[in-house]
Design a protein around this nucleic acid. Structure first.
Lengths: 353, 353
DNA sequence: TTGTACGCGTTATCAA
DNA sequence: TTGATAACGCGTACAA
């Protein structure tokens, strides 16, 4: 790989002149400038980001730490971040913390030795580490938290309107006439899961509907968790007529459970998810779900990050992206008051009451 | 951030000794060694990967260029690569080329200025660039191609058994009694798509079944493409009794088309996909699909890459991972010979001939 | 305006 | 075994 020295030799100018041309750091007379540019083109020179970073104490990398790229919600976030970063001349270094705190810390400390411009984090769990790092340290990488809000975090954040989204979903079920509404939450130590539960509760309270304690089940954000939680819920008396699954993976598990128990969705039980993944539109019936703007989440994270790079002293911002309810055939009115007990009642029973 | 110099000062040894301790590059007597380690721990020192890379002409980064993380097949590949890399002390720099050749090239050239140990590429299209780079250049990053095989590529590669997978799927349909089998391929300039079509053809030829030209439709690897191709296929006379969609996104589109035309799967038409994505198990009916080992694909890519780093001169390897057919309710025997023309024939018609 | 010399944090090569 | 010193490629203050 050619270096600046070789350019200088070929163009018959000094090293400093080459640098000045490349960085516009000083006016260089046209003929010299031309010679330099020609040499650069001829040799296919690209500046070493390594040396440049070492000298400037900062590279054009942005680290991104996420729990697990395999979770279908995250690819869109990553893509949004990557596009925004690339557009501004930055490169994304992706790390899967795997919901593993020590791995997250390992990545954090390792990443910093690359002198990245910033780090975008979707915290795995409530991580104190993140808190420490972000606190203030003037001259370090800028840190922005995404999607989840660590407890004592003081810094820029982008999240989605989790509580409002949950309200929308729950309200819709209420409007359809449901009175027995259960929910399966994600791990409640995550700020997002917590907020969704709050929204669920708020909507029901407003409608003066009581929620039995056992109608609220905590689960991991995956299919297996949703499945087993749903098995429990669906065998309670009275059986809930609607389930609000707090992400789409959970909703998939619920759908499996419903099918396995010989129930029909939405005739026996309505189902609404959270995420709005493309693929859940293909489920049968198509899943109603609260849509999260994943791509924008990532893009906005980069935007906030770059803005702070420019103005390190401005106030911390906490950007909240709106959610929207995607309707789908998985929700309908509740079954008539006395549901036939697992006897295959005619599927055509649609008369209200 | 503390530097080696500060360690040296604190431990009251020379810079070289610190380096020797950290890299085991020379025997250091225990008392000194101890003092160094203590200082490292006290200051929380982490070596600068930037400076180290500059000096050694190589960093612990591995670049990974993929077409689009948003395609549900790739996250597993990335995850596999990332896990394997992390396990060996390497970091993954992820880049979405977005099926855009110029972006792919931009990433390639930029990535190299970081002096990464290697680059893992899932080629977007047939990219000549990739070819150029890989050719031989002794001292550069090692390049390994994944999933798709650029035309004149000479270098290490990992792919899956595309042709065999297609044979398995097609053969299974044949065994069920299907005679009118259509397929929707991906872009045929991609080696994988091409191989799958070969497999499809081979299985049918072996069974002496003719394939009308219009039963083979080329499409992009997404839902929209599958949907429109399927709309065409399903209105042909005779209508195919089975469709082999060459990836799961296409299969989703086909499922939509089937539903929209008022047909029933698998009663009217059987459907088999390729990828074996988790989510397609949740479709209704659950999609039969040829499973690709995505995680292993990524992991094996890193393994080959690291092996070549150790032995730069060994012969190029081309590793092929096996595929397996995942059965699912989306396939069944063909309808009786004279399919009632869109009149709702009893769903129970299962007698063979 | 252009050229020179130094330093960024490491590793590698020598002397001691 | 240990310590001093020269690179690696680039940016920049300072001298010409």
């Amino acid at each position: 790989m050619p270096t600046m020295n070789e350019i200088a030799r070929l163009a018959e100018v000094s090293l400093g002149t080459v640098s000045n041309v490349l960085n516009n750091s000083a006016k260089v007379r046209e003929p010299l400038r031309r010679r330099v540019m020609d040499a650069v083109a001829a040799l296919g020179y690209e500046p070493s980001e390594l040396a440049r970073g070492l000298r400037r104490d900062k590279t054009n990398m942005i680290g991104m730490i996420i729990p697990d790229i395999t979770n279908p919600f995250f690819p869109a976030v990553v893509r949004g971040a990557e596009d925004a970063a690339f557009g501004s001349g930055y490169r994304l270094v992706l790390c899967n913390a795997d919901n593993n705190q020590s791995k997250e810390i390992a990545y954090m400390t390792q990443l910093r030795t690359y002198l990245p411009t910033g780090i975008l984090v979707i915290p795995s769990n409530f991580s104190e580490m993140t808190m420490q790092l972000g606190s203030s340290k003037r001259s370090g990488p800028v840190i922005v938290c995404l999607d989840r809000m660590p407890r004592h975090w003081k810094g820029d954040t982008v999240t989605v309107a989790n509580e409002e989204g949950a309200v929308q979903a729950t309200q819709h079920l209420i409007d359809l006439g449901h009175k027995h509404i259960a929910t399966i939450t994600g791990p409640l130590h995550l700020s997002g899961a917590h907020a969704r539960l709050m929204g669920f509760r708020r909507a029901l309270k407003q409608a003066a509907i009581q929620v039995p304690m056992e109608y609220v089940q905590e689960s991991s954000f995956d299919r297996a968790g949703g499945y087993s939680a749903a098995l429990g819920l669906l065998q309670m008396q009275p059986r809930p007529t609607a389930i609000f699954a707090q992400n789409d993976m959970i909703a998939m598990g619920v759908a499996m459970a419903i099918r396995e128990l010989g129930l029909l969705c939405p005739r026996d039980v309505s189902l609404v998810g959270f995420d709005g993944l493309d693929v859940t539109e293909l489920m049968d019936p198509p899943l109603a779900s609260v849509m999260q703007p994943g791509y924008q989440l990532g893009a906005m994270g980069i935007q906030l990050l770059l803005e702070r790079v420019k103005e390190p002293d401005r106030l911390f911002r906490h950007h909240v992206l709106p959610t929207t309810l995607r309707l789908g055939a998985s929700i309908g009115p509740p079954p008539p008051v006395r549901p036939a007990k697992k006897t295959r009642s005619s599927a055509a029973t649609k008369s209200k009451k």
